[in-house]
Amino acid sequence: MANSQEFVSRRIHSLLGLVPIGLFLLVHLVANYSATRGAEAFNSTVTFMESLPILIVLEFVFIYIPLLFHAIYGIYIAFQAKSNVGNFGYLRNHLFLWQRISGIITLIFVAWHVWQTRIQIAMGTEFNYDLMASILSNPAMVVFYVIGVLAAVFHFSNGIWSFLVHWGITVGPRSQRLASYFTLVIFVVVSFIGIRAITAFIQ
């Protein structure tokens, strides 16, 4: 019974990491990328996002609650998992370890980012281009954001590979190898979008 519950929990954890959390990551980074067209373009994107009907309900149902479950269960998995990198130096063993490490880094980054943005908005601060430019005027914050974005994108892209395996979509070595190439492309492209968005706020 316990094994059955863990099986279901791991499947839910994997699914939520892809949908809706992964989709939100993509939408969020693409929205931030609008800053490359200038402050007015970014502020227009923010205005559109903030004008969505029942935004707070959408955020809790499709972002906060799934993210909370994914994070809590992910921490459990990270500390329960036994890495065998020391014994087997294969690439997938290392990626297995870095999936856990990147998850912890991403959790810290997301918590801090939510504090700097959503919590501040709730306290009356206006969210716009100037706010992000102010945050990223500190070189230490730039480094922190770059590390956080890269960790989040790696966790997402490598998580896609794990999702495909765990859900029985990629079974054989060839399909798993193709999936590795596919997720590598996702990592490179989405990382570029995320890093380019950060640099757009640096004045």
Rank of each mutant, 00 (worst) to 15 (best):
W115M: 15
I193G: 01
R177V: 00
I63H: 02
A200F: 04
R177L: 10
Q120N: 11
I21N: 02
F79A: 07
R118M: 14
R177C: 00
I104N: 06
A35H: 06
F69Y: 15
L178N: 11
V143P: 02
L58M: 11
A41Y: 00
F154S: 05
N87M: 10
L55E: 12
S4L: 12
I202Q: 03
I21H: 01
I77P: 01
F163S: 10
V143Y: 04
I56H: 11
E40F: 04
D130L: 12
V143F: 04
N43K: 08
S175T: 12
A31S: 10
T183F: 02
N158F: 06
S162R: 06
I121T: 12
P139R: 14
F60D: 10
S51D: 10
G38N: 07
Y145L: 03
F88M: 07
S175L: 08
W167I: 01
Y33E: 08
L136Q: 01
F156E: 08
I104D: 08
I21Y: 02
L26F: 13
E126V: 14
P173M: 07
A140H: 11
H28N: 08
Y64K: 03
E59I: 14
V146M: 10
I186G: 00
L131C: 03
S134Y: 12
N128D: 15
S180M: 09
E59K: 07
I65S: 07
L136K: 01
D130E: 15
S34Y: 07
L58S: 11
V165G: 01
H94C: 02
Y73A: 09
H155T: 09
Y145S: 12
H13I: 07
L107Q: 06
F154Y: 13
R92W: 03
I198A: 02
A179Q: 02
H70P: 06
G38T: 08
T117P: 01
L16G: 03
M141G: 03
L25C: 05
P139Y: 11
Y64D: 03
A179D: 05
P139V: 12
Y76K: 12
I195A: 02
A140K: 13
R92T: 12
V146Q: 08
N84D: 15
A111H: 10
I54M: 14
S14R: 06
